[in-house]
């Protein structure tokens, strides 16, 4: 089997499990919705301020949702020592990493889209054709986040208190993605599409860099004892 076939098969396995259980996406979507509602309550009925805060709130909610989704994916893999079997079966271990990146990207991208739809309703964002420029930003951010997330999961899998350690390692590493994601979203909401393109380029570089590092380092990070 080629690397692409392995990646497709493993990612389909993750997505199939998620479609059947909806545990990770359900919990993460609820977390994101709660964050949006709580910010609305905390800030009060100041529509302009809420619109200004929308990108930051969405990205912060996304970061915490990433922890939830990633942890759930990892739990499934580690249950009944399934990961060791997967490790032995995979001809190319990069496929395990890339599959995790693909499935996490898909879930996190859809989650972000859901959060933006909710933000349009709750935070009274004006619907304009320019908002379509958010689509590539959403998927680039999801890719970058998933690339770091899959590697961080491998790092904490052997650690004691791994659920505490995961956000401690993951969230600071995601700051460059957060900065570029917020910058791009603010630019899109303000109608500055050229600026958004600049941030999008930065996001692409970050995502490619993190994914490249992940491909190189995953085997070292994930080898079971």
């Amino acid at each position: 089997m080629s690397l692409a076939t392995d990646v497709a098969a493993l990612a389909a396995k993750d997505i199939r499990i998620e479609l059947r259980t909806r545990q990770a996406s359900g919990a993460a979507a609820a977390l994101g919705a709660i964050a949006l509602v709580l910010v609305g309550l905390a800030v009060g009925p100041d529509a302009d301020r809420l619109r200004q805060l929308a990108p930051s709130v969405i990205w912060i909610a996304l970061l915490f949702a990433t922890v939830t989704v990633a942890d759930r994916f990892e739990r499934i893999d580690r249950a009944d020592d399934a990961f060791s079997a997967l490790w032995l079966v995979a001809a190319d271990r990069r496929a395990i990493y890339l599959a995790k990146v693909v499935s996490l990207t898909l879930v996190l991208g859809l989650l972000q889209l859901g959060l933006w739809v909710l933000a349009v309703v709750l935070l009274d964002l004006t619907l304009r054709v320019e908002l379509l420029a958010l689509l590539p930003i959403v998927w680039l951010t999801a890719w970058s986040t998933a690339s770091v997330g899959a590697l961080a999961l491998a790092l904490v899998s052997a650690a004691a208190h791994r659920m505490l350690l995961l956000p401690v390692l993951l969230l600071p590493l995601l700051v460059p993605t957060l900065v570029a994601g917020v910058g791009a979203s603010v630019a899109v909401l303000d109608g500055r599409i050229v600026d958004a393109g600049g941030w999008g380029t930065m996001l692409s570089i970050e995502a490619a860099l993190f994914c490249g590092l992940g491909i190189l380092l995953y085997e070292a990070a994930a080898t079971p004892e």
Binding site: V148, L151, L155, A158, A159, L169, L213, L217, A220
Partner: peptide, 8 residues
Amino acid sequence: LSAVLGIV
């Protein structure tokens, strides 16, 4: 594991 984190 710390080598990986030190690089990233």
